[in-house]
C-alpha cells in the first residue's frame, strides 16, 4: 500500500535521502530505525510533503504523493504525528483535535478518542502547553486519528517519555493496528520498535541497508546493531 521508490531528497545542498526504497503493507507496522541524522525524519517528511523530494515516487494505494501539497496528502489519507509532538500550545485539548477534524462522519469521534485516551478526557479544557509530554503524545495521536487516516506517520513518539508512558504508548500503537490502519513508525527505542513492528527497515546515510520481518530481525538483532546502529 505505501510504496517508496528510489526517493532522493535534499536540504539545501545536503543530499539527505539517496535512493530510499520501502514498502509497508496494508494494516501492518513498518518501523524505520537508524542512527541520528541518517534521514529517518526526512523520509517521513517527504511522505507528508513537508520535504520536497527531488526524485523518486511515493504511492499510497497507487496514488502518487510526490508533488502534492501537505494538505492534499493529508486528505489522501495520511496523518502525521511529528517528532516533538508539535501540539498547538495555546489551543485546548479539544481544539487541538478539532483542527484536524475535517470529516463530520469520521469513524473516530471526539468521544471515542477520549475513551481511548482517558488522560486527555480529564484535561479536555486544558491548553496544549499545560500537558505533560506523555499527554501531548497521546493528543498528537488523537489529532491524527480524527482524520480517519489510512496511514499514520509516527516520528519518534517515545522521545523524552518516561518508561511507563512508553509502555502505554506501545499498547496504544497495538490498539491502532487492530483497527486496520497502516503505521509507518520512526523510532530510536529498539525495545518499543520491535515490540510493535511487523517489518523492520534500517537506514544508513539516506539508504535502506537492511529490511526484514521483525522475527527475522530479532534473530540477528545483535549483528545488525553492531553493523549499523552503534557508533
Amino acid at each position: 500500500m505505501l510504496k517508496i521508490n528510489n526517493l532522493h531528497t535534499y536540504y539545501g545542498l545536503g543530499h539527505i535521502l539517496q535512493g530510499v526504497d520501502m514498502k509497508i503493507d496494508t494494516g501492518s507496522i513498518g518501523v524505520l530505525i537508524g542512527r541520528n541524522g541518517v534521514g529517518k525524519s526526512t523520509t517521513i517528511k517527504s511522505v507528508i510533503g513537508l520535504a520536497e523530494p527531488a526524485q523518486g515516487n511515493i504511492t499510497l494505494f497507487d496514488n502518487e504523493l510526490v508533488g502534492k501539497k501537505p494538505h492534499n496528502i493529508a486528505k489522501a489519507g495520511v496523518a502525521y504525528v511529528p517528532e516533538g509532538r508539535l501540539i498547538f500550545p495555546d489551543l485546548t485539548v479539544i481544539e487541538n483535535i478539532k483542527v484536524a477534524n475535517h470529516k463530520p462522519d469520521s469513524s473516530w469521534s471526539i468521544s471515542r478518542l477520549l475513551k481511548l485516551f482517558p488522560s486527555l478526557k480529564a484535561r479536555e479544557t486544558n491548553k496544549g502547553s499545560q500537558l505533560s509530554g506523555g499527554e501531548q503524545q497521546m493528543l498528537a495521536i488523537a489529532r491524527a486519528l480524527i482524520m480517519d487516516p489510512k496511514l499514520i506517520l509516527l516520528d519518534e513518539p517515545s522521545q523524552g517519555l518516561a518508561p511507563l508512558v512508553v509502555k502505554e504508548l506501545a499498547k496504544v500503537i497495538k490498539i491502532l493496528k487492530e483497527t486496520g490502519v497502516t503505521i509507518f513508525l520512526v523510532e530510536q527505542n529498539l525495545k518499543l520498535a520491535t515490540a510493535v513492528a511487523d517489518h523492520v527497515f534500517v537506514m544508513v546515510k539516506g539508504k535502506i541497508v537492511y529490511h526484514n520481518p521483525v522475527n527475522d530481525f530479532l534473530k540477528e538483532e545483535d549483528k545488525i546493531k553492531k553493523k549499523y546502529l552503534t557508533l
Binding site: 501537505p70 494538505h71 493529508a74 498547538f88 500550545p89 478539532k98 483542527v99 484536524a100 475535517h102 482524520m147
Partner: peptide, 24 residues
C-alpha cells in the same frame, strides 16, 4: 467558528496545520 480556530492554529504553527489537512 471553525475558520477562527484554524486562524488561531495557523498563528501558532502553520506547517503543522498544513500537514493536518488545511490549505494554509
Amino acid at each position: 467558528t471553525r475558520i477562527g480556530l484554524l486562524i488561531r492554529a495557523v498563528s501558532q504553527n502553520p506547517q503543522m496545520v498544513n500537514a493536518l489537512g488545511t490549505n494554509v
